[in-house]
Design a binder for these strands. Structure first.
Lengths: 221, 221
DNA sequence: GATAGTTTCATACAACTGTTTGAATTGCAA
DNA sequence: TTGCAATTCAAACAGTTGTATGAAACTATC
């Protein structure tokens, strides 16, 4: 492996084109033209088109997952193995939201690519997403430690709803802006994170069982 | 227009095939083979493949929207023009969830088709979804009437989160079942509706501003 | 039962797709 | 420099796709 020039040129061109125009109407010929390399180079370096897409997605995906786990681990270490549920949820949805939202003009190619991947969902990407369950289980475990009185079912539903709000907001950010006539500021990422975390926390703590977090909130009044 | 036989055979076959195998790998030739009609019939009756898909999606989409508005109108009439927020949210997410979840074996073709449409999102369907904003505005208006002290921003965020939870749960129902090792029962549709409505209600009523719903809940203790 | 309009049909079209091939080129080590 | 492997390249391949065509079959009306 000499200089990797061709290989990385393809990766960069593909990510940019997919981000801009979607997976549906970007062909290998578009990519190699943008990268200034030969058509056969894609199959030579990646094996197939799907493996190219998979490599793009895996790269960005592990970056996000690493960031998530880093935040989670830091929070749990600081709390002696048990982090507050809000912090766990923030570690779960924060990196994704920060990576995909924010002012459109300064949005990275990687961010726009991940938004596409979230909207279009082509087979090679779907296959990878299915392997993410182990990763989510780590968060489920941390949430169970934070809310020991909650049932597993409630934990999983809370996790599901937290991811739902984050991903849907990313995927439909344009529509929400239009619907609200610009009143909802999707560029204020930290506000979005706070809203998602707040609602997810309520979903997990309110209800029949009185949890520590709820008791704490009540006592604080 | 004589008997519509060919036309409806195409629609039925297309919906079934798309539901089973997704938009990605179902060709017009697959559809006409399944329908037992000639290849040219699709272009003759629908103009193009995209228009066929659009007609399929519009049909099911207006059914859901009609159902939503029926529930909303009934609730508002009963409440003298103002329905409780829970009932509005139930009218928003109930029809969609009831239409797409439930025991897989007895899930209708239409339901499975709509799940596909929610996962894959092809261009003709995306175009139609973009026109749904007017429909959502009616719900935003009803929610504003129910929670007059809430800011528009909060209303839109609540609406966004309610749709997020419903759609994400539909789209990722398989993954949630696997993640929770079957503990989350996606077949108990009314339980899912109740969970989504409950969380969305909390999102809309809890927080800085003390709303009527919250005051009511507190006084009830 | 002839006619006009609609619908069906087999077939061809034209374009595009990801992939393969085998030769040419390059870069590096002996 | 020679030799060898890695890389690049132009070209072609094989298959699929949605769509168009023009003739044939059908249907209803007069």
């Amino acid at each position: 492996m000499a200089s990797d020039h061709t290989r990385s040129a393809i990766l960069a061109a593909a990510e940019r084109l997919y981000a801009d125009r979607g997976f549906g109407d970007v062909t290998l010929r578009d990519i190699v033209a943008e990268a200034g390399v030969n058509l056969a180079a894609v199959n030579y370096h990646f094996g197939s088109k799907d493996e190219l897409i998979a490599e793009l997605f895996v790269t960005r995906s592990v970056q996000t997952n690493r960031e998530r786990l880093r935040e989670l681990k830091a929070a749990e270490e600081q709390g002696g193995g048990r982090a507050p549920i809000e912090v766990i949820l923030r570690a779960l949805v924060g990196p994704t939201l920060r990576g995909c939202l924010g002012p459109e003009t300064q949005r990275s190619t990687a961010a726009r690519f991940m938004i596409r991947a979230s909207i279009e969902s082509v087979p090679p990407i779907r296959r990878i997403k299915n392997r993410e369950i182990d990763h989510l289980r780590k968060f489920a475990a941390a949430m169970r430690r934070a809310l020991p009185e909650r049932s597993d079912v409630d934990i999983y539903w809370g996790l599901n709803f937290a991811l739902a709000m984050a991903h849907h907001t990313i995927r439909e950010s344009e529509r929400l802006t239009k619907l609200s006539e610009g009143k909802c500021d999707l560029d204020d990422v930290e506000d979005v994170v706070a809203r998602v975390v707040s609602v997810a926390t309520m979903a997990l703590t309110a209800g029949r069982t009185e949890t520590k977090a709820r008791a704490l909130a009540r006592d604080a009044r």
